[in-house]
Structures are given as structure tokens and as C-alpha cells.
Design a protein around this nucleic acid. Structure first.
Lengths: 284, 284
DNA sequence: ATAATAGTGTCTATCAGACATTATCTG
DNA sequence: CAGATAATGTCTGATAGACACTATTAT
């Protein structure tokens, strides 16, 4: 095997020793992360943004992220950035999409491998140590658009949503396109990462256990249902919802107050054992 | 806005004029494509492989693909490579996953953005013009493993499949790991691209119109069902299958022979108009 | 006491799983 | 004619949609 020689008469070992990739146009690659949780009463999302301290998009808010280093995978880079920004570890982290538009960064060519991190947003997560400024923002999503805001910082970002159609092979697809109507914007194409992540989350949410990454270890069914309704963007019927989650959870026997109302409800924990597996996610 | 100055007193325009990314470690990025179709009687897949004419993996078979050029997106690179290799245009093409292991290529760091192309495999597609050698291979997939072979070329590649478990956040997932037990192998980590693509295709196939990219414009229901059964890896009941596809197709009134049997069946075409849309796919 | 919410029961519509039957065509 | 396959009918079971009702508790 190793004795195979190429057209220059070189073995693989010899070839590799002489190999140089200087002169090729290479892109930079970043891992950017949408850190997504819910607010305390599950009425909206919370996402982590960092304020850009340098050009380009100086002063704009952006998703946390950074260059993928020499000896790490994109996944490791995302996990590292997440840990640096929030101190969070062992968080659900999933690759969403690689954004490769040659002009998405005005400096030079930078591809972004986007990740979605699911966190329990209302458990207050430590701020960052790294960026110029970092903060949790509230985010609400509905048919008209995506609103990202922080009353603390006095920041309000809004993108309207338009439906587009594109053709892929013989099939036509509908997709969302975010349009800013002036005002503050997210840096780069980060709004697209937000949209793709939300779509992917929504489409996988009901038939998965993803919700349990966004809620505390001990929770009530009214709260869990509110979380599902937030992500899915629609009301669910209590009975049906409870039948659906029945085999994912276990009652502790305790009672606790829901975040969404003042009344005591039965307390549950996630029961990972009884779950049928088989989700389609990449390891790496 | 453009008058914002950074800590060095530079405007964005000034900053960009001076920006240099020399000295950073950048990866190379390729777009690699699993070109997937079925054989003529829908009993197995066909995939397009190219034989490597240089190191590394000299002489091994690999997925077609190539470096993403300076001014194109990864999607455009995949479409270009596909067109160069097969002459196919307007083919269904979907980003699957970005593979970023730092040691996946022995030359230097090369990330691969993997795409899945769905084609009508049994309509014989023109061979390549580019690589050392290119050929359609048969591929069968079952619980025990993935077999890729070409009797014409006398090539037989087999990977056993083992189930692994990994944890992501609070959730445990099952995944597939391909193990070669000697013999010929696919170059690089391309077997992982095959696996991820098949998993993603399988999970989206039933509730989408993807099948119509893998079958001719005019088809019979027995054939369409065979295709679904091939991708899903299980038998379907005729009645249920027909109820499911009823609103996706339209009878032409003609009759034609199925590929799978000698009897005449009613002929149908894909009816894209009546489809509810809303698939979750990225545009770019 | 009142209003709101927790928790449960039940009816319906849909759809996949599963067989059975009839009609038709090929060899 | 015989065996296979196309096409259709129908029963069942699981689950989401929908609504009603009772029990409990915060204010």
C-alpha cells in the first residue's frame, strides 16, 4: 500500500514530506454559536450576544464565536468558545449549517460553521470574560418577524420575515428571509444563523428530548408545556401533550411552583432511560 | 455609522484597507458530494466514485469533490464539481455536514463540506472528464453494513456497521460507526459522509418529495414504492403507501411497464403544485 | 367566594400497520 | 390455465386535535 508511487515517482511518505499548500487561497473558518434558552416564564427566548469591539461591524451585536484553531474540530471550537463566554460545560451543541458566502465578511474570506447550543436560559449564566461586552438578550419570534432586545442595554433589533421560494432539483421549497427595516442589526449574516437554527430546532423539537436541555432538572408539566409552545410557536392541548411526554418523564412525588403560575404542580425529572433512541445527529 | 473608529482610531474603511490575514493558520476547504441514485430495478443504490490519481490515498476510490474556489460558495463548488463529473445540472443538492477533524487529510488541514446530490441513477449519466477514473458503483445498505462494489472494475468495498452511543447535553444518542475489516476502503473519511447522508435522507424521505429526484419524470406506483422501500430499508404496505403519495402525483392516463415487474401499470407524473411546502432546508 | 389553574376523561380525525379480495396480465 | 402482480377495500391501533369536567388553591 505505502509503496504505491504517483506520476512523479513519489511514495506517499515522500509526497507528504514535500507537500506545500502555500499559494492556495484558503478561507478562514469560524465556529459561531447561537446560545439559546428561554426566559423565566417561557414567554420568550433568551440568546447570548457579544458586542463587537473592533471592525468590521464595530459596535454591533454578534453571536459569540471565534476562529477554529489549528488542532481542534469546529465542534471543539464551539464548545471552547461557549465555555469561555458562559462557563457552561456539557451543553447540548449541534452543528446547524456551514455559511460560505465569499462576501459574508468584508475583511477576507471567512466561512462560518454555525452551532446551536441549548441552555437553561433563566438559570442565570455567568457573563463573558472575553469580548468587549456580552449580554443576554430577549428574543421573540412570530409570523411578522424576529425581535431581539435588551431593555437593560437599550438595544432593540428587529427583522421582518418574508417568505421566499427556491427550487432544488424538482422540488420547490419555502424558506424564510429576514429583512431589516433600518435600526440596529446583527453583525455579519448572523440573523441567518438564528433563522436556520430556529427552523431546525422547531422541526426536531416535538419528536425528540431536546426540551430537557432548556429546562431545569426539576420541572412541572405546565412549565414543560410552555416551553414546547414557545419553541413550536403554537398552543398545545394539555391532554395530548401529557400523553406525549408521559414516557419521557418521571414524577418525583414532590410538588413545586411552576414558573408560569402561582399554583403548585407535581414535580418531574427527565427519564432518559426509557427513551427510544435513534436521532440523526452527528457525533464527531 | 461608517464614522465609527476603533481603538486604533481607524474607520472601518481604513481598517479594511490595512487588514491582512497572513500568518493565521487557515484550513483548506473542499466540497465533496455523494451522488446518489438507484439502480434500474430499485434493488440498490448507485453512487458515483472517482479514483484518486495522486497522493494521498492514491488508487483509492473517493467521493467526487474539490476545493471551494475563491469566489464561490460551497454550494456553487458542489454544483460545479457535479456538473464537471456528470454533466448533470439542476440536480437536488443539499448540504449535509461539515467535517472538520484536523487529521482527516494527511497533507494539511482540509475541512470538507459534504453535499448530497440526488439523481436518477439508472438513466445512464455521462462519466467524468476530470478525474483519473470515475465510475458508478452499486451500493447496498443493511443492518450488517455498507457494501460498495463494481463488478465491472472488480472492486468490492465493505464496512461493517456498529452502533455507538454518545451524549450531547442531557440526551443520549445512538449513531452508526463504520468499521472496515480490511480490503479496499474509501479515501479519507468519505464513508462517514456516506453514512451521514444516508441517515439524513432516510429521516427526511417519507415526509418529503425527495423521491421524485431519484426517479424519472414518468413512473409507476410499484416503482415509486420500490424506491421508498430502498431508501427506508423496509417494506411498505401498498394501500398505505398509495394513500400517502396520492396528493403528490397525477395520473397521465397512459400505461407503462414498471422496472420491477413485467406487468403494465398506470403511469404517473409528479404533481408539485398540490404540495404543501415548508421543508426546512437552507437556500444559499 | 371567586377565578384561575392542575389534572383527567373522552370523542374524533388522521394515518400507518396489516390483511384480504378482485381484476388483470404474462408466460 | 396458472401464478404473479395491479389495484382497491377495510379493519385496527396509535396519536394529535379538540373540548368538557372535576379538583384544588392563590388571592
Amino acid at each position: 500500500m505505502d509503496e504505491l508511487k504517483d506520476k512523479n515517482g513519489l511514495t506517499e511518505k515522500e509526497f507528504l514530506a514535500r507537500y506545500s499548500d502555500k499559494g492556495y487561497d484558503k478561507p478562514s473558518v469560524t465556529a459561531d454559536i447561537l446560545v439559546l434558552g428561554s426566559n423565566s416564564d417561557f414567554s420568550g427566548f433568551r440568546i447570548l450576544l457579544v458586542k463587537r469591539g473592533g471592525h468590521p461591524f464595530l459596535g454591533s451585536w454578534a453571536l459569540p464565536g471565534g476562529f477554529v484553531r489549528k488542532d481542534e474540530t469546529a465542534y471543539q471550537a464551539a464548545a471552547r468558545e461557549l465555555s469561555e463566554e458562559t462557563g457552561l460545560q456539557n451543553v447540548y451543541l449541534e452543528q446547524i449549517y456551514a455559511f460560505t458566502n465569499p462576501r459574508r465578511d468584508p475583511r477576507t474570506r471567512v466561512m462560518s460553521i454555525a452551532y446551536l447550543a441549548l441552555v437553561c436560559g433563566f438559570e442565570d449564566v455567568a457573563g463573558s470574560d472575553d469580548a468587549a461586552d456580552a449580554a443576554w438578550f430577549d428574543m421573540t419570534v412570530n409570523e411578522s418577524g424576529i425581535r431581539i432586545f435588551s431593555t437593560e442595554r437599550g438595544v432593540e433589533i428587529f427583522y421582518g420575515i418574508e417568505r421566499g421560494i427556491f427550487q432544488n432539483g424538482k422540488i420547490r421549497y419555502e424558506n424564510w428571509v429576514a429583512k431589516s427595516s433600518g435600526g440596529e442589526k446583527l453583525a455579519f449574516d448572523h440573523i441567518e444563523i438564528v433563522i436556520e437554527s430556529l427552523l431546525k430546532l422547531k422541526s426536531n423539537f416535538y419528536n425528540s428530548d431536546l426540551a430537557f436541555n432548556m429546562i431545569g432538572d426539576f420541572f412541572t408539566l405546565p412549565d414543560l408545556q410552555s416551553l414546547y409552545e414557545l419553541v413550536l410557536g403554537k398552543k398545545l392541548y394539555k391532554t395530548n401533550f401529557r400523553a406525549m411526554v408521559a414516557d419521557k418523564i418521571q414524577a418525583t412525588g414532590e410538588k413545586r411552583k411552576s414558573m408560569t403560575s402561582g399554583k403548585m404542580s407535581a414535580e418531574y425529572v427527565y427519564d432518559s432511560s426509557s427513551r427510544a433512541m435513534g436521532a440523526e445527529t452527528s457525533s464527531e
